[in-house]
Design a protein around this nucleic acid. Structure first.
Length: 840
RNA sequence: GCGAAAGUGGCGGAAUUGGUAGACGCGCAAGAUUUAGGAUCUUGUGGCCGUUGGCCGUGGGGGUUCGAGUCCCCCCUUUCGCACCA
């Protein structure tokens, strides 16, 4: 298969002896995939990892190995990332590009339940199929450093990670109201609840109180937010993270609970704290609203109101979150009979409960300012509560009626607010909070939307949480030498409605002695969240050669943080935020010397077809295998990248693939002519100029992931080299073989070999260098306009002076015609581009 | 509702960031070569008209400019996030 001898350039006569002169993608691709495998072209040994001089860690989001197999979206993402990696390699980097499988989690488990096959049987099958398909796509994957999150050798370290966080006080076991999906029968993180429904199955989520493990990600919230200013990520992703963290500045104001004394209301020691971003409007707080499940409800509710309050609480609990969180539904609530003292006015205000106030945000209680908050306005209008104006905008007075909430928080001044009257809104905010603070009735506060990360799952298909509950010692970590806590193989892995994990049914597994006191104890029977598995996998890849440590310090210093991470924006918040947190925590615990895992992240777009996302329900899914069979992976890769900008995705059109297919054929035919031989003559100057312009363009656009225009440039170049049936020479096509290699690696290897080279085109920095002198245009077309309208063009040497250009332009018949009988008032000259006569 | 991005031929999409709109590809038309090929090659292809020329044309309307797909204002549409977050 490999050419004999060590000549870099073998004479083309060897090719005329070759019976295989036609391009047969399947044969070429199989040949090179086998060669890469055999020669270890894409793998790095432990020594190579340790000693690489210019390491480049090219990471892409590893897939969940579904039973359906690799879909076009996977191939699209991986191809875009693979091109990046291959380019880096051809420009002299040692590229580490691993691939793995994120095979734990509800997704896999649900599918296993559906088809009635045990995941331990199903997953290896899927992984094998994925691996086969991934090889076929021609990705430069290092299969010696692969990761499977369900492998005990991997999840041993996932459990280790849990224990590190536990020992650092970053894991907490507490009873909490949680999102419960009645269909998946499991707890979901807030992030997995989309508009009140389960992200996976769309079932409305209920609320339950269960003991859960939480990671205290909120301790890192400020750093997670601040670092966003310094990392090189897609703008859309940064924005999504900022939104998700949801920082808002405001104040916590305390409303003392009031007690009736005769006909007066007096403050008690108990307070209802509220969070507000508008402390300036506190004089307009005419009532207080608690979330129905707020602990203070029982304190403020009067005996007369109790029945109504209980009833409302019960109804709320029964209402699922979808219905509850519909912003457009009419607001409801009931009066508790109790009152609080408005800390600013000293007046008693009624306390209500209403389901539009959410327990999870802020303090679970609000001061309602109907005059200046739309939701409060709506509620007050519906229930006949007083509305007071405390901010007046331009042209408004203290008594200007409010027929809707006035929410402008920039231009108003305070009214009806005692000694704060006349202050602008922003000044009043701090003044009021500071004054209340002196009385212990308030303080500045920053609130976040982000919650602690709930990591326990009452499911089967995940790594058991490595904790042993002992009646006398409490929650005891499993000693590291006992890791992994292996997931037992059990036939009945179905979750049930009890809220406990299926593992809680496996008594001989969970009954263990306490590692500390030796007494009877019980394993934690929850498994950990899938997002924990993938929050650290990139640390594992380069260190899979080691079984005795999660990641080797030296290797990690050499390869991390990840140089480029490419993936879908659907993971913009969850996976990317959690893995940042994990990395930060490991950094603080002394395991890593960096705190941000990915230097550069780029989100890719989505492939759509017939105007919408590919989905089974729409029946517009493209199955990759037959396309690869018909056209070859090289053509498929080119086509996917040619559809549109990689960052934006593209519209898959079935007939379009013939374009790139023809391009590959023409390239092949140019290097391996059907008849005769590849000319070894010097390059044509015009073709050479175009070549160097193309090299320049690709060298700029590939690192920027602008693949669609890069491919267009290569097509353009080949069109020039073959214009008018011309036969290009070796010097003209050989560099193109290198340029196309990241996109179409198999055909590039084959042509490289047929050009007489030994070994892989990817070994050695074979990316062509461009010569600016050769790329320079010898003549430029200058547009000639009269009053901004194109009237002709002149062809001149670059840098031609304006005076010469004017003379040439005026000599153009059509330009002259438009300059007749008019006076040239002004000439606009853009060197080498345009000349505009302004006439009048 | 809020936020972001985007609207360019029959279609996917280009356009050096204010300077010849429609690169490249699909599709279509005509031809060459093959005539088992989704192979190859040539030419044409935004619309309209008086066709060596001209007018119109980048969702709609206004504006800035010698010059606007690109900048500004208003409106419409689509897609994607967030969604009673106080």
């Amino acid at each position: 298969m490999r050419p004999a001898g060590n000549a870099r350039h073998r004479p083309p006569k060897t090719m005329s002896n070759d019976p295989e002169r036609g391009y047969r993608p399947a044969a070429v691709e199989q040949k090179w995939q086998e060669a890469w495998e055999r020669d270890g072209t894409n793998t790095l040994t432990a020594d190579e990892l340790r000693s690489a001089e210019s390491p480049f860690y090219n990471l892409m989001m590893f897939p969940y190995p579904s039973a359906e197999g690799l879909h076009v979206g996977n191939i699209y993402a991986f191809t875009g990332a693979d091109i990046h990696g291959r380019y880096k390699r051809m420009t002299g980097h040692t590229v580490f590009q691993p691939m793995g499988f994120d095979a734990f989690g509800i997704h896999s488990e649900n599918f296993a339940l559906k088809v009635g096959t045990h995941p331990m049987e199903l997953i290896p099958r899927n992984v094998a199929n994925f691996t086969r398909q991934l090889r076929r796509t021609g990705g430069m994957f290092d299969w010696q450093h692969t990761v499977d999150t369900t492998d005990p050798g991997y999840y041993k370290w996932t459990q280790w990670l849990f224990l590190q966080l536990f020992k650092a006080g970053l894991a907490e076991h507490k009873e909490a109201p949680v999102n419960w999906c009645p269909s998946c029968m499991t707890v979901l993180a807030n992030e997995q609840v989309i508009a009140g429904a389960c992200e996976r199955c769309g079932t409305p989520v209920e609320q339950r109180r269960i003991k859960q493990w939480f990671f205290k990600i909120t301790r890192y919230v400020e750093r997670l937010l601040e670092n966003l200013d310094h990392i090189d990520w897609s703008e859309t992703t940064l924005k999504a993270q900022r939104n998700w963290i949801g920082r808002s500045e405001g104040g916590e104001l305390r409303f003392p609970v009031a007690r009736r004394n005769g006909d007066r209301w007096e403050p008690t020691d108990q307070v209802v704290p509220v969070f507000t971003t508008r402390p300036d409007t506190v004089f307009g707080a005419t009532y207080v609203v608690l979330a129905p499940e707020h602990p203070m409800v029982d304190v403020v509710t009067t005996p007369e109101a109790q029945a109504a309050v209980r009833d409302y609480q019960a109804r709320t609990a029964a209402t699922d979150l979808v219905a509850r969180q519909k912003a457009d539904k009419t607001k409801t609530g009931v009066f508790t009979g109790g009152r609080c003292i408005n800390p600013a006015t000293g007046e008693p205000v009624p306390v209500w409960i209403a389901d539009y106030v959410l327990m999870e945000y802020g303090t679970g209680a609000i001061m309602a300012v109907p005059g200046h908050d739309e939701r409060d306005f709506e509620f007050a209008t519906e229930l006949g509560l007083p509305i007071v104006r405390v901010v007046a905008g331009e042209g408004q007075q203290a008594d200007t009626p409010l027929d809707e909430a006035y929410t402008d928080n920039r231009n108003g001044r305070l009214v009806n607010s005692g000694r704060y009257d006349g202050l602008p809104v922003d000044e009043a905010k701090s003044a009021i909070v500071n004054d209340l603070a002196k009385e212990g009735l308030g303080e500045l506060r920053v609130n976040y939307r982000l919650h602690d990360w709930c990591v326990s799952r009452q499911r089967y298909w995940g790594p058991p949480i490595p904790i042993i509950h002992c009646p006398s010692c409490g929650a005891v970590p499993v000693p590291e030498y006992d890791l992994p806590v292996e997931l037992p193989a059990v036939d009945d892995f179905r979750p049930d409605d009890s809220g406990v994990s299926p593992l809680a049914r496996v008594e001989d597994w969970f009954r263990v002695p306490c590692p500390e006191c030796g007494g009877e104890a019980r394993r934690e029977t929850d498994v950990s969240d899938n997002f924990l598995d993938n929050s650290w996998y990139f640390l594992r890849y380069p260190s899979t050669d080691f079984e005795d440590r999660p990641f080797d310090p030296e290797i990690t210093r050499q390869w991390l943080p990840v140089d480029t991470y490419i993936g879908g924006n659907e993971h913009a918040v969850l996976h990317l935020l959690y893995s940042r947190f994990t990395t930060m925590a490991l950094h603080d615990l002394g395991h890593l010397d960096f705190e941000e895992p990915y230097i550069k992240f780029r989100a890719h777009g989505l492939i759509i077809r017939e105007g919408s996302k590919m989905s089974k329900s729409k029946g517009n899914v493209i199955v990759p295998d037959p396309i690869i069979e018909d056209y070859g992976a090289d053509t498929f890769r080119l086509y996917l990248m040619f559809l549109g900008p990689f960052s934006e995705g593209g519209d898959y059109q079935d007939t379009g693939i013939t374009g790139p297919h023809g391009f590959v054929h023409r390239l092949w035919e140019s290097v391996v002519p059907k008849d005769g031989e590849l000319p070894d003559t010097p390059p044509d100057p015009d073709v050479e100029q175009k070549l160097h312009q193309t090299i320049r363009q690709l060298s700029e656009q590939i690192p920027a992931l602008q693949y669609n225009t890069a491919i267009a440039a290569m097509m353009e170049y080949l069109n020039v080299a073959r214009a008018g049936g011309r036969r290009p020479s070796r010097a003209e096509v050989e560099p193109l073989v290198c340029l196309v290699a990241p996109f179409a690696p198999h055909v590039a290897e084959e042509l490289w070999q047929r050009l007489g080279h030994e070994g892989s085109i990817f070994d050695g920095a074979n990316w062509p260098t461009f010569d600016p002198a050769k790329a320079a245009e010898s003549t430029v077309q200058v547009a000639v306009q009269v009053n901004g309208k194109l009237r002709g063009t002149v062809s001149v040497a670059p840098g031609t002076a304006e005076a010469d250009l004017v003379a040439l332009a005026k000599a153009e018949a059509n330009v002259a015609k438009h300059l007749e009988d008019v006076q040239v008032r002004k000439v606009i000259h853009v060197p080498d581009r345009l000349l505009n006569f302004v006439v009048g």
